[in-house]
Design a binder for these strands. Structure first.
Lengths: 109, 109
DNA sequence: TAAAATACATTGTTATACTATGTAATTTGT
DNA sequence: ACAAATTACATAGTATAACAATGTATTTTA
């Protein structure tokens, strides 16, 4: 078993799965970045580095798949709450379809 | 629907799925590169560019997940037939486990 | 006999995960 | 009371990989 290759592979696999997972989670609820990391870790055991998530959220925002609004806290740093857009929902559905297709394909080999 | 983003996403998803698919296909049979492209297209409808596959095979070889042997043809250009190694089989199994896990996780969100 | 297909390969471009680092406020532990 | 940890944002640099474009050489097809 090539453990090192496997880890590198998982990192590459994340390039496809992370945007999908983030959009999925945001289709259920609004979250702010720091919280998303913890929520996804709790939900999936997948650890997303901050240096991965924040740029990813910026990209999703630039693509109009999510929007955000700053929410002041009674105490502490203000939070940037992200929500999925209609375009984000439609794109997520297309991603779901493709995922189902690729999963079926892989299982069949 | 953000079609352009979806296509970019599929390209990123391939960074995880292609090595997995190639190893899976090679776990059933030996193939040469050019043939693998056609075989995978037939099996999965997924089109792999030559500029993607050849470097990928080089990487899998460098990681000892596959080996190859040149086979002269009665006519035509000699073919580099690839076969999966024992280390490749074990790593593929670990990849299968991870895939099952990530698929289950994604379905559950 | 020109065009398409077979079969290998590399270079340059673009995209993205991850580590390291930075800022600033707040909370916790001692 | 004060140092350390946590919360919450963010960016710069590095490594990796898909893909288009291009290249070489042989063989088959129209």
């Amino acid at each position: 078993m090539n453990e090192e290759y496997k880890n590198k592979w998982i990192s590459q696999l994340k390039k496809g799965t992370l945007p999908f997972i983030v959009l999925s989670v945001l289709s259920r609820n609004t979250y702010y970045g720091y919280d998303l990391i913890n929520e996804i870790k709790k939900l999936t055991d997948i650890v997303i580095a901050e240096g991965t998530l924040y740029p990813l959220l910026v990209r999703l925002k630039n693509e109009n798949l999510v929007s955000y609004s700053w929410v002041e806290q009674e105490s502490g740093i203000p939070r940037k709450y992200y929500q999925i857009t209609e375009e984000g929902k439609d794109t997520l559905n297309a991603m779901k379809d493709y995922w189902t297709y690729i999963n079926t394909t892989i299982q069949s080999i």
